[in-house]
């Protein structure tokens, strides 16, 4: 039958257990009632997991990547370029893949009705953008540097400045939602979301680097944030789940 053909598939490599945070990280209060308690079942990668949503440049608006030009005027704050390359862990580019970002404005306030932080909204800044990686896996956004903001996790808790990233990669199995931080932030030590990544080297990979070469003189500073998604199993697999 038709559905049987070409069914042998190469899956994606299983993640190193230390690369991602655990579901339960009690210092981050929100995990306490939301982390599953029962062990996860290993899902072999079938055609359902090695495929995933496909979005192309045709679906992007011309200014979707530029968060400073989505309104009548320019937003307040420090204008920055955020760019980098998306690859798999073998260094192969992740091409033509959707990246969505969102962030607080320069004062640390989100355009979200749930955000009650008494910092000003900026009529010229929404804080949402998206783009498609190019043939080499590169992406580039123009935005303003987000502010830190307080939250209710523990007394006097503040989130370090960050930009949220959502990536599809090539497959359902490569989907990643993460946050990009800025180098040298004094708030890292008390932030349980950043600290939920146990391996210090893995944690460092969430921090962008200041990129003088990518700055635009007399216009914008630049930060580089490279993103690594899981790579492909070398050989097509044939396995029966137990």
């Amino acid at each position: 039958m038709a559905w049987q053909r070409s069914s042998r598939v190469a899956g994606y490599r299983r993640d190193d257990a230390e690369a991602h945070p655990p579901y339960l990280h009690p210092d981050y209060k929100g995990t306490r009632l939301r982390a599953p308690e029962r062990p996860l079942t290993i899902l072999p990668h079938t055609l359902s997991e090695i495929t995933g949503p496909v979005y192309g440049p045709g679906q992007m608006g011309p200014l979707d990547h530029d968060l400073t030009r989505q309104h009548g005027g320019e937003p307040l704050g420090e204008r920055i370029i955020v760019h980098g390359r998306v690859t798999d862990d073998d260094g192969r580019p992740v091409r033509n893949s959707l990246i969505e970002i969102w962030q607080a404005n320069a004062a640390g306030r989100y355009v979200h009705q749930g955000d009650r932080h008494p910092a000003p909204l900026d009529p010229n800044f929404s804080g949402a953008g998206r783009c498609i990686t190019d043939e080499e896996g590169h992406y580039r956004f123009v935005t303003v540097k987000p502010g830190a903001y307080p939250w209710g996790n523990h007394p006097n808790a503040w989130r370090p400045a960050h930009i949220h990233f959502s990536l599809f990669g090539p497959a359902f199995a490569t989907r990643l939602v993460t946050q990009m931080y800025f180098p040298g932030d004094p708030l890292f030590g008390q932030d349980p979301i950043f600290q939920s990544v146990r391996d210090p080297q893995a944690r460092e990979r969430l921090i962008s680097s200041f990129d003088l070469d990518a700055t635009e003189p007399e216009w914008a500073l630049a930060y580089r944030f490279d993103i690594v998604l899981r790579g492909r199993e070398a050989t097509p697999m044939k396995r029966t789940p137990k």
Partner: peptide
């Protein structure tokens, strides 16, 4: 050893204006 993976982080509470617009 290959490149280290970028760790996951929470989507947070304030994603709607970007992801589900």
């Amino acid at each position: 050893p290959g490149l280290g993976l970028t760790p996951s982080q929470t989507v947070g509470p304030f994603f709607h204006f970007a992801l589900t617009k």
